[in-house]
Amino acid sequence: MVLVLLQVLVCVLFVAISMRDLLNGEGAGTLLSSQPFFDPQVSFPSLLAILPLLCFSFPGFDAVTTLAEETIEPEKTMPKAVMLITLLGGTLFVIVTYFAQLVQPNFQAFSSPDSAGMELFMQIGGNLLSAFFLAVVVLAAVASAVASGASGARILYAMGREGVLPKGFFGYLSPRFRTPVWNIIVIAVVAMMANFLDMLTATALINFGALLAFVFVNIAVIFHFYIRHQQRSGKGIILYLLLPLVGALFTGVFWMNLGATALILGGCWFLVGLGYLLYLTKLFRQPPPSLHFEEAESFN
């Protein structure tokens, strides 16, 4: 909560100082402009070219769902948490990006795209604001790593507990701490591999899996609610057919535009998973293990 408040405070300071500079005639010299949302000089292929970076930057808002079994009334709490995280993060991103575009319309003025945020904070707020921004960024990175490690270890534990992965290793809990220690170590080792990967390779691996998973999540919603449980009222058609269908189509388009590197590396990883599935099901002669949760499903 403290970190969230600090991030909000940074955004508020940035917006306030940006408004002051814009009212003084700096940057675009106006508080209202459509240019941050639509620039005729930016082509659609150029937008598609940055999709891998965008997809790499934003997955993770759903990681909170991995702690559903430790949550009171998860069927009510988790959907609200995911929506609040998405709305809060999305709102802050849009507002900050909007004012950043107005304050510095010329993106080529930055010495490096990787440090553009730092340069912008230095430009409008000097050393004090840029130092505060850097401190919050470091704290956010650490918090993100801890949250990602916890969620990844929790998923591996659930898969080990249900026999999807070897139970003796992945389903083990420390008798003293009651935590999946081996899974935490596995996540840490995998995370350390980032030191040996360039941004292109890391982006390719993550985007392939994330976008493909999102496609199948949308398809699963259609099969589970609309087809199997026949949620076919007016509300059901919108929520369980049209929206997930649109989501699957858009995500599928993004997935197909990831580029050759992502498709080759991700395809190799997919084949490894397929091979393990064939071994687990004895060439599909028996059903694969499934995850079971303590909370019973309920439908409106």
Rank of each mutant, 00 (worst) to 15 (best):
C11S: 15
V15P: 08
L31Y: 08
L31S: 15
L32S: 07
S33K: 06
F38H: 14
S43G: 07
A49M: 09
P59H: 06
D62L: 06
I72N: 06
I72H: 10
V82E: 05
L87D: 07
T91M: 11
L92W: 02
V94W: 02
V94K: 01
T97P: 01
T97S: 15
L102G: 02
Q108S: 15
F110D: 01
F110W: 04
S111P: 03
P113E: 06
D114T: 07
S115Q: 09
E119K: 05
L120S: 04
M122G: 11
Q123S: 05
L134I: 06
A141M: 14
A143N: 11
L156Q: 03
Y157Q: 12
P175D: 12
R176G: 08
F177G: 06
P180T: 09
P180E: 04
N183Y: 01
A188F: 14
V189Y: 04
M192D: 09
F196N: 07
T201E: 12
G209Q: 01
F214K: 00
F223C: 02
H224R: 08
F225S: 06
Q230L: 14
Q231D: 10
I238Q: 05
G259C: 15
G259I: 13
L263E: 15
C268A: 15
G273Q: 06
L278V: 13
K282L: 13
Q286N: 12
P287T: 05
P289I: 09
F293K: 07
E297R: 07
